[in-house]
Design a binder for these strands. Structure first.
Length: 214
DNA sequence: AGCGGGATCCAT
DNA sequence: TGGATCCCGCTC
């Protein structure tokens, strides 16, 4: 099954970049800070670190929701027994095996969505899970934890496979950088993964109140 | 066709 | 600690 077919199966009415209104109005002095494809074309740990402090932006229904990423987890690939890709290439995990810079969004426990950023070269299957967001603009509800994050950002399976270098859902360099202290911990909810569950692949900003409790 | 379980969250 | 609630992926 090709990627589009997989996306159709796993998300009714897939959101495409073409459906959305023109991106950013041409303005004098506007600086496009969107992260380029090359940002995602690296190992998962490097991208996970680099994502902390970046802005997640979703334009939909005339609203632009913005949150600052404060917590992530790296999933290294099929050899990482905590990663979905460790179960092989299936319709659900198809996007993970695809090119970097796309969204891998899935339904968990029948009621929450989780959003990943696909990283590393096409054919590899690594990703970074977004787990905590500090509200910046037009965010309602809690954003601590991957399920609440997606709910607050109005992200669901329709976004599975979406190109993150487009104009609908993307990541961006914040206008102002601030110093960050990063904490490393074991990932949450992956006790089934043996010794992989103990690897320090969860990263978050020290002291930030929008880091999930767990 | 059936079944076991899940990268969650919340109430008890 | 258990329930909600749906889909996935495997087995029969």
């Amino acid at each position: 099954m090709d990627r589009l077919a997989a996306n159709r199966q796993h998300g009714a009415l897939p959101v495409t970049n073409a459906m959305e209104p023109p991106a950013v109005p041409a303005m004098e002095g506007f600086k496009d800070r969107r992260l380029p494809r090359t940002f995602y074309d690296r190992d998962a740990v490097s991208v996970a670190y680099a994502l902390l402090g970046k802005h997640l932006i979703h334009r939909s229904g005339g609203a632009t929701r913005v949150g600052r990423i404060v917590e992530v987890e790296a999933y290294l690939g099929p050899h990482d027994l905590a990663a979905h890709s460790a179960r092989g290439r299936t319709p659900r995990t198809e996007v993970m095996f695809g090119p970097p810079g796309h969204a891998y969004v899935y339904l968990i426990y029948g009621m929450y969505h989780c959003m990943n950023v696909v990283v590393e070269a096409d054919g590899r299957a690594a990703a970074v899970l977004l787990r905590g967001l500090e509200p910046v603009q037009h965010i309602e509800g809690r954003t601590q934890g991957p399920g609440l994050l997606c709910r607050a950002m109005h992200i669901d399976r329709r976004h599975n496979g979406l190109d993150l270098t487009g104009d609908v859902l993307f990541l961006s360099e914040p206008a102002v950088e601030v110093p960050m202290t990063i904490v490393k911990r074991p990932r949450i909810g992956v006790d089934y993964a043996g010794h992989w569950a103990r690897r320090l692949l969860r990263f978050y900003l020290k002291g930030n109140r929008f880091v999930s409790k767990a």
